[in-house]
Design a binder for these strands. Structure first.
Lengths: 205, 205
DNA sequence: CAGCGTCAACACGACACGTGCCGTTTCCTG
DNA sequence: CAGGAAACGGCACGTGTCGTGTTGACGCTG
């Protein structure tokens, strides 16, 4: 019975070698062509070592993305909400644009068919970033740039949803002009005029 | 050299057997566990026959979905835009909810890593449905339920985007109440008040 | 009735997976 | 400073799926 390994005795040099090898192979071949065997070979590590610490290829890449994307996780706050949203959404568009050999697309695809990986992706990568988004939006409410009654769940849906809809079906990503139009529409929806209450009640049956 | 096969001589009984076998296996095992070999075995067909007419497993499933989803492709038009949007979006939510053994999720995942399949999915399944959506929205404009200046691309993004964002990250799908709130927000964004022009110009820089 | 193309059946090599075993190295413990 | 447990690299194995190749039977077309 292989007892659960002891993290204290883990070789950090192997871990680093495996992660950098995975990063290089993703950049060279694209996520789909990367195999555990190739990672192990390039890292000078044993497959057994990889399987000891990660359950799947996706888990390795998830940890890789988590490290490299930690820098860009924070939402900017220049004081201008529209500018900051544009900056943040543009960064996400870059991550999701398939021209780059970004492993993000491959990881998302694998998570769609691997429930364990999906849970890790959601809890370790996405939820913290959603929390950051909510912080930024609440700051905008405090600054008077967004209605205090604005529904922040709806804000997330309206602002980020279009990107993923287009990503899934390989539709073209918004260009800067259209992104501005999208942001304007979302903010208009979130900053209701005086008669908004009646409209909402009507639509929700 | 295997010349391109002659569609006129194609065996329709094999085609039907392969598609129904694929449907049964998807329902029993889920998309990910279905293999070309299993489809061929159950259909009483040869793998070679499948590869002669379809380039991949995904292409078979795409044709299967295209047939079965043809019935539900049309947007309803009861005359009430909000009701019809709710009906249509609820149907899409059902397709994307992972609890069902719907092959849609698996097909989308495979298309993310297979450019040829992605093109077929977009052109054969998605674009016709987007066209239907635009027809319905234009009818709403003609009926005075939607502003004639409403941007129908934005409408698609705001209404469908949230579903895919949640689908990708395995976040919970909107319940009926929240779906109503989403529709209300989208329609509010699309039906600008008098001062809308200035807001749009501001956000798009 | 002749022949071309599709058909089912089976065999085959290639590839990646995940695991087991070996001898070696590392590092904590007493 | 020894002793040993545990992680390590290296290697080989069995499994499963893929996509292709080959063969002979069948049926439609001209």
């Amino acid at each position: 019975m292989p007892n659960p390994p002891n993290p204290a005795r883990r070789s950090q040099s192997s871990r680093r070698a495996i992660l950098t090898a995975a990063a290089e192979l993703c950049a060279e071949l694209g996520y789909g062509q990367v195999t555990i065997e190739a990672i192990a070979a390039r890292a000078g590590a044993s497959k057994k070592t990889i399987y000891r610490w990660w359950p799947s290829k996706g888990a390795v890449i998830l940890e890789l993305i988590d490290e490299t994307a930690a820098v860009t996780a924070a939402h900017p706050d220049t004081g201008d909400l529209v500018t900051d949203l544009r900056t943040q959404l543009t960064a996400v568009i870059d991550l999701l644009t398939p021209s780059r050999t970004s492993p993000v697309a491959g990881l998302i695809a694998e998570a769609l068919t691997d429930p364990d990986l999906a849970r890790d992706l959601r809890d370790r990568l996405i939820k913290p970033r959603i929390a950051k988004f909510r912080e930024r939006m609440r700051a905008a409410q405090d600054a008077g740039q967004l209605s205090p009654e604005a529904d922040l769940d709806v804000a997330l849906d309206l602002l980020y949803g279009p990107l993923y809809h287009r990503f899934i079906y390989h539709l073209p990503m918004p260009d800067p002009d259209y992104l501005g139009i999208l942001i304007a529409h979302a903010l208009r929806a979130l900053n209701p005029p005086a008669n908004a209450g009646q409209t909402v009640a009507n639509a929700s049956r």
